[in-house]
Write a protein that binds this DNA or RNA. Structure first.
Ligand SMILES: [Zn+2]
Length: 319
DNA sequence: CGCATTTGACCCGCGC
DNA sequence: GCGCGGGTCAAATGCG
């Protein structure tokens, strides 16, 4: 987890060619010519003869543009994650936050490493347990460096089971209804290792019922049981605004990771809920999340749909 | 039978 | 001290 490249290219570079890196591994990425010809065949078969040509051309152009935008967005996200990791590392190395009043809270040095998303958040062979509480200071709260960070996960709005698949094994130990949110909050504890202190809280967002906000605290002291094999498709994780911090520093602007775990669920793409005009400061993150998710999903969806349609047309023609 | 989940009880900090 | 709200416990229940 060395961030070897100390300078990150955050330029957008609109005019660079967008195919320097394959963005998503769609099962059958059709070449554009072939796709266009199949679209033309499709249009011919439907009988709308002449008008479909420019429309198909427009569609292809828009798709290419969309793909380019997706590429840019992914690069931006990668650069952002890299920058954020560097910032986190810098903040860990240089504890410059002396703004806390020394009477109430004592800040705890956090020298832990943090990877950029929650999937790869293992590798913490810390065991730096030299801080045993043998000292008999009465009011000395331990450096409970329970790092808290949030993740916003998009799931189906109809999924009532309030479960976030993140590759770990969790045991639910509580569920409460909170004051300012009609949806209940579930409390989980990591049950893979008996000594793993990681807990998480999962609750739906107030703004968007299809977003689960999971709050992780602590760090796993064991390797990840299952590597979350579902990342092999359209759901590319995208993290936003995640800086791990100690538990006493979370105020309104807590750290957040926004992931997109939306399953490619049988075609029915429900990006229905849009958090229009909400005045929460977090809603901007949700908007960004949804924009990113839509941008990420749409080219895949259109490509898959076009491939499916063209394949079906081709099959029909061959029959 | 052993595990996880459910769910009301309990605890505890905080504000009045 | 008391009420309230969030967090946890644990007995009951469900499930393989
Ligand atoms: Zn764990």
């Amino acid at each position: 987890m060395d961030y070897s490249s100390s300078c990150v290219d955050t330029s957008l570079d609109l005019n660079s060619k967008p195919y320097h890196r394959e963005l998503y591994d769609a099962p059958l990425p059709p070449p554009k010519k072939e796709l266009e010809s199949k679209f033309i065949d499709f249009g011919m078969k439907l009988g709308a003869k002449q008008e479909t040509g420019p429309l198909v051309e427009e569609l292809n152009r828009v798709s290419a543009e969309n793909k380019k935008l997706t590429e840019m967005l992914t690069m931006m996200c990668e650069n952002y994650n890299s920058l954020r990791n560097q910032l986190a590392e810098y903040m860990n190395k240089n504890p410059a936050e002396k703004e806390l009043s020394p009477s109430k809270k004592r800040k705890s040095e956090s020298s832990n490493n943090n990877s950029n998303n929650i999937i790869g958040a293992n590798g913490n062979s810390e065991s730096s347990s030299t801080d045993e509480e043998s000292c008999k200071k009465p009011r000395e709260e331990e450096p409970i460096k329970t790092k808290v960070w949030k993740t916003c996960v998009r799931t189906e709005a109809t999924d009532t089971s309030l479960i976030v698949k993140d590759g770990y094994q969790w045991r639910k130990y509580g569920q409460k209804v909170t004051r300012d949110n009609p949806s209940p909050r579930a409390y989980f504890k990591c049950s893979f290792a008996p000594s793993c202190p990681v807990k998480k809280k999962v609750q739906r967002s107030v703004d968007d019922q299809s977003i689960l906000v999971a709050t992780y605290e602590g760090e796993h002291n064991h390797p990840q049981p299952s590597p979350l094999e579902a990342t092999s498709g359209q759901n590319r994780g995208m993290t936003l605004t995640s800086v791990p911090c100690s538990a006493n520093a979370i105020s309104s602007s807590g750290p957040n990771i926004t992931l997109d775990f939306t399953k490619p669920k049988s075609g029915t793409d429900s990006k229905s809920a849009k958090p229009a005009r909400t005045e929460s400061p977090d809603v901007r993150k949700f908007l960004v999340d949804q924009m990113a998710s839509s941008l990420t999903k749409d080219p895949n969806f259109t490509a898959a749909l076009a491939a499916a349609i063209s394949g079906r047309i081709y099959q029909q023609k061959s029959n």
